[in-house]
Design a protein around this nucleic acid. Structure first.
Length: 289
DNA sequence: ACACTATCCTGCAGGC
DNA sequence: TGCCTGCAGGATAGTG
């Protein structure tokens, strides 16, 4: 499910319940997520207070009062919800079956934070807070797309000499961390760049970005910001923590719109679907060059 | 180093 | 109605 805007939406929804709260008890109902849980996971979390809830790329990081951090990734289908302890209070708003409620955090103020993940591609880790930056999965992450580090010079530097299609490089978390299939398709459409194009062809011989490539960083930031304002995109799993749906899916210009008219003003093209490295790419062959 | 594939897992939509 | 196939927002190990 979640790309950067969805993970950030989850962070903002979870923070009020989690930050400052003490974890009274943790239930792990299934241990076989993508990675096995850390040893004595529940016991190590019991009694810990949450100091902060951060995001890096598509990871959530809960800093605890024992100098460790709980790192969480939602994979494709992970989601959180907040349940009230009050007996008889049901949560139809979440629309979730309890069948895939794998982890339940019972908090001292009486609420529960529940992790649900049908496909079990998510994971949870415990890492010493001061070692996160050195952790192998974190030190290899690329720039945050909403930061100043993502600019035309940066993309020119990482695209230069690369034969792979531009879409593949934008999905590579080691270069830019946080984009996924939806927002890569959307950003490339906004920048009028074909996803099929060899990344290196957008860089001049002297290493400068082409005019099209110079548009890309802002197109990425714009689409992510627009999606954040909408609370993310809700295809099947993603909801805001209060159960309401994100609504950015209504603003997709190309994603999942095969056969529709291209929304670029003045463009008479039709959105096409192609498969790149096994995943659907949506683009307008007419205005994305 | 780079480009590309297969794989983990469940649920759902579409075709017959 | 059911059965089958393919597809889904991610990341990684493994192949040339």
């Amino acid at each position: 499910m979640p790309e950067l805007p969805e993970v950030e939406t989850v962070r903002r929804g979870l923070a009020p319940a989690l930050v400052g709260a003490t974890i009274a008890r943790v239930e792990v109902r299934r241990h076989d997520l993508r990675l096995p849980f850390p040893q004595r996971f529940a016991a190590r979390l019991q009694g810990r207070r949450v100091l902060d809830l951060r995001r890096r790329a598509k990871y959530l990081i809960a800093d605890l009062d024992d100098a460790h951090s709980l790192i969480m990734h939602l994979g494709m289908s992970g989601s959180f919800r907040i349940d009230d302890e009050t007996p008889g209070h049901f949560h139809r708003a979440s629309g979730k079956s309890a069948a895939h409620d794998h982890v339940v955090f019972h908090l001292d103020h009486g609420k529960r934070v529940v992790y649900n993940d049908p496909r079990r591609f998510g994971c949870m880790l415990l890492v010493a807070t001061n070692e996160i930056v050195a952790d192998k999965r974190f030190c290899s992450l690329g720039v945050e797309p909403l930061s100043d580090a993502l600019d035309a010079a940066f993309v020119a530097g990482v695209f230069r000499g690369r034969a792979a299609p531009v879409k593949a490089l934008l999905l590579d978390q080691r270069l830019i961390a946080g984009l996924g299939n939806i927002y890569v398709c959307e950003a490339l459409h906004r920048a009028h760049i074909s996803p099929l194009r060899a990344a290196g062809s957008l860089v001049t011989g002297s290493g400068r970005p082409s005019a099209a490539l110079a548009r890309l960083p802002q197109a990425i930031k714009d689409v992510l910001q627009d999606a954040l304002k909408a609370g993310g995109s809700s295809l099947r799993d993603h909801r805001q923590i209060d159960g309401s749906l994100g609504y950015f899916q209504h603003s997709f210009r190309v994603y999942d719109r095969e056969g529709a008219a291209c929304p670029t003003p003045g463009c008479k093209g039709t959105i096409a679907r192609v498969v790149q490295s096994g995943r659907s790419t949506f683009h307008c062959p007419r205005c994305q060059k």
